[in-house]
Amino acid sequence: MNSIQSRQTKRRILQGLVIIALLIGAFYAAFPVVWMLSSSFKSNRDVFAYPPSLITDSFSMSAYAAVLTNPEKVRFFTNSYFVALLVTLFTLAVGCLAGYSFSRYNFFFKKPLNMLIISVQAVPPITLLIPYFSLIVTLKLFNTYAALVLTYMVLTLPYAIIMMTGYFNTLPKELDEAVMMDGGSRFNALWRVLIPISVPGLVSVGIYTFMQAWNEFLFAVTLTKTMEMRTVPVGIALLMGQHSYEWNEMMAMSVLGCLPVLLLFLFFQRYFIAGMTAGSVKG
């Protein structure tokens, strides 16, 4: 009786500590974002008022209205979604195939290739800009979605491959062998067994890929030229004028940009939980 009681108090204390720690962490993570939200409702001048306050007399939704009622700016959002979704889809598909190859086969160029895939991302994009731009122009991809999608695939694939190789490595080879014993092909083993088990990995790689594609600025501004092709980060930069910034609209645009991403994350969270049960299958 006593020991159960003391265990319960211990649990309570632990619970309290965890909640306190979580709240402190949440403040650290969220305060700047709260500040962004608050700035998006202020007038440009009050953004810099001192002493600062969360809500000022100039509270207004006009920055949001300015963004949402401008078809050009709405187009930035649809462009960003379209590009980021395609990139996520293709990167996951291509990355899974490559990861499977690295995980399940032994072949001659394996190590050098692995090394190569890691190191291609080590060249600062800003120096690649000029040759890369010329290349895209030569391929007749300048100012197309394809230019952005392919570029972001190149940027995100190394991570996807490394991660998917890692996840597949944790899954016992007996799983594939069982499928092949039943007459299935290797590809079947990948598609039917390994990929469903790897959902948590896929989700985290997918989220990463989506974020990268969503937030990339340098190539987005270089490889497109018309307003119809611009993405959200370029749209935000367009509000930073030569002499002055539209602070509230910039903030409003980032807030609007992050909402759907957060919803997406909220929705996919349950796959982490699903991953728990999947992970225990192999035991």
Partner: peptide
């Protein structure tokens, strides 16, 4: 087959997107 599908998708993406873009008279 499946590999070819992926490749075909990629190819479709390249050509498809080029046409999707409304203002892409690159050359």
């Amino acid at each position: 087959m499946s590999l070819m599908i992926v490749m075909a998708l990629l190819a479709a993406l390249i050509s498809g997107c080029t046409t999707v873009a409304p203002a892409a008279p690159a050359a």
